[in-house]
Design a binder for these strands. Structure first.
Lengths: 137, 137
DNA sequence: GTACTTGCAAATATTTTGCAGTTAC
DNA sequence: GTAACTGCAAAATATTTGCAAGTAC
């Protein structure tokens, strides 16, 4: 059974075509779209879907732990399909947002906990710079 | 000579009471206020100052490298007086945003550069959790 | 005096909300 | 059948912009 279906059932949430569509749109988008981009991607296939529904679905998915909301300093939020917390790379020229997989960063939270007595539940690491293709051009 | 004055002169920008006020408001706020909070703080003393001016001043200060814009996932930006990039701690209960000074994090950028071929110019690290006073209560 | 800056108001952008109608179960 | 969900429109919130009046130099 698909992960989304399982998690929705678990949370006593209805399985609707809209939610499946939003979920798949995110899954197929390596670009970490914002809500409007998701909406635009779906609009041709689902002419009656509304932006509000996209927002509501994304909010639900975050509560269920299916996706991660990231904010890289634009004035809109981006949504990331991968639920595990990982750093992001933002190109300051072409604005693309990439994932960064670097194991050594996962231990940062415990360093912070030790130092501050906070109970850390989530972290967001963003690195801003110029990507190889932009710096090459 | 005060730092603000020096930097403004350097950038051929006028030294105005409003800019000085915004700068000092930030300097005196360990809470990393957002634009509206800065405005509210100034309003009693400067009844005619406008929110637009606060925004314009903050934008200018960022361009001049005097302050840092941070975004911890709210839908407003916060502004940080300290220009050097450092991690932030956000309490998910009381919403306060603290600075974290931890030297070992400064080398992260070079790790990322090596791994990705990005030329990193800025980083934002945010750790979310429950602060000691909230978890104690 | 002039170029920069301010402050107002309007515009823009993003996200949230209320509610009537619809749908999954 | 009922509670949950959708879609529309309006509201709320945050930020930007245009421009006339004001101010630093």
């Amino acid at each position: 059974m698909e992960n989304l279906i399982k998690v929705l059932k678990n949370g006593s949430c209805k399985i609707t075509p809209q939610r499946i569509a939003v979920y798949n749109a995110l899954k197929d988008s390596p670009t970490h779209p914002n809500a409007e981009a998701v909406y635009n991607k779906l609009a041709p296939t689902y002419p009656t879907i509304s932006l509000a529904t996209v927002y509501k679905s994304l909010e639900l998915f975050e509560e269920l732990g299916l996706i991660q909301v990231i904010n890289v300093g634009e004035n809109s939020f981006r949504y990331d399909f991968i639920a595990t917390s990982h750093p992001h790379l933002i190109c300051t020229k072409c604005q693309k947002v990439e994932d960064l997989f670097e194991d050594s960063f996962s231990e940062l939270a415990s360093v912070v906990e030790e130092k501050t007595n906070y109970k850390i539940s989530k972290q967001q690491l963003s690195f801003y710079g110029v990507c190889p293709s932009c710096s090459g051009a």
